[in-house]
Structures are given as C-alpha cells and as structure tokens.
C-alpha cells in the first residue's frame, strides 16, 4: 500500500515539476505571430499590387498559411508559386494570371499630360511617385514595383506601364541565347 502511495506521490511531484517547466517555457519561448507566414512573405515579390485580392503581400502570405491557393501572385510568376507550394507542401497549380501579366513593368508618367491631381500618389503602395497638388508628378523608377495601381485612378490616363528593358547589368546570358542585332540604315556621314 505504502509502495503505491510513494509511486503516486512521486509521479505527482514529477508531473508538477514538468508542468512548471512547460509553463515557464510557454511564456519564455513564446513565438509571436506565425513564422510560416514570415517565410511565405519572404518568397512573395512585395509588389503590394493586390492582384491576389488581398491588400498587400503580408495579408496574402497569411492567407496562404490559412489555406488559400498559392497561385494568385502574378508578379511572382511560376517560380514564386512553386517555391510557396514547396514550402507549404501543396501541389503547384497553374498561375491564375496570363504570362503577359507576369512581365515586369515600371510605371511611367507622361509628364506634360499630368495635371497634378495627386491621385496616383495616393494609390501608390510604396510611395514611389513624387509630386504635389497641381504640380507634375513623376515615378521613381527604381522604387516602382510595377503594381499597376496608379493607372486606374489617373483622370487623364497619362500613366503607362512600360516593360523593363534589359541593360548590360541585368542581361541574362540564357534569355538572349540568340543575340539581338540592331538593324539600322547606314547613316550618311
């Protein structure tokens, strides 16, 4: 009888000790937020375009963790979708967007047509448009994510989305396996 009592007490004490340790660990090593969402967000292109239907990349990352589809990011393209699918352990799906939508673009304001309404400035998710009321606006091409969000609000349709051209730095050996030759007429000198 006493043996049983000892065992019960001993086990009870052990349970208390481990419970205390677990309780302490739960407080001390608490993980804020969802680390998986952070990982997904790191894979997203951060264009903040909202084409996925969420207001920004972070909400979409959280939605993916919450079980949303992984193929809703046109700017990220197939590569991003595949990476996210791999991370989430789901089957890759064909992108919801056309290939045309995946071409990287940069907004360009035709400056002499700009009336200075500041609507595009308000629409830009990354503050990449500079200008003031009744003054001409312009896009900081470096910071433009090509999200398209400024095109719609423009009352005079003076914003173009221009595909990013390659320069010597961004040139990819593989992409231009057949070198482009400029055909031009011989100029009379």
């Amino acid at each position: 009888m006493s043996g049983i009592m000892i065992a019960v007490i001993l086990l009870g004490l052990l349970a208390l000790v481990f419970g205390a340790i677990l309780g302490f660990a739960a407080v001390k090593f608490k993980v804020e937020g969802n680390p998986l969402a952070d990982q997904v967000e790191a894979l997203l292109p951060q264009t903040q375009c909202g084409q996925c239907g969420y207001p920004g990349c972070r909400p979409y990352a959280e939605a993916i963790v919450g079980g949303d589809k992984v193929n809703k990011c046109p700017p990220g393209g197939v590569a991003t979708m595949e990476k996210i699918a791999e991370l989430m352990g789901v089957e890759p799906e064909p992108l919801s967007a056309t290939t045309e939508q995946q071409v990287k673009k940069v907004a360009y304001i035709r400056e002499d047509e700009c009336i200075g309404c500041t609507k595009c400035i308000q629409a830009c998710p990354v503050d990449a448009i500079v200008g003031a009321g009744k003054l001409m606006h312009t896009v900081i091409a470096q910071d433009c994510t090509g999200c398209d969000l400024c095109v719609e609000p423009c009352p005079v349709d003076c914003i173009d989305m221009i595909p990013v051209t390659q320069d010597l730095r961004s040139w990819n050996w593989k992409l231009s396996a057949i070198p482009v030759t400029q055909l031009e007429e011989e100029k009379p000198c």
Partner: peptide, 28 residues
C-alpha cells in the same frame, strides 16, 4: 556558369528590390 551567375545576380537584385518595396510599403 555564366547563366547561373546572371540568374543569381538577378535573384539577389529582385530580393533586394522586394525588401526595399516592403520597407517602403510599411513606412507608408
């Protein structure tokens, strides 16, 4: 190797830009 190097450079550039866009978005 040249293709791979270009791709890596491109990826790094994309990553840097994404990081920058994120910072700007959050700042906004």
């Amino acid at each position: 190797y040249r293709v791979a190097k270009a791709a890596i450079r491109h990826d790094a550039e994309e990553k840097r830009k994404a990081e920058r866009a994120k910072v700007r978005f959050e700042a906004r």
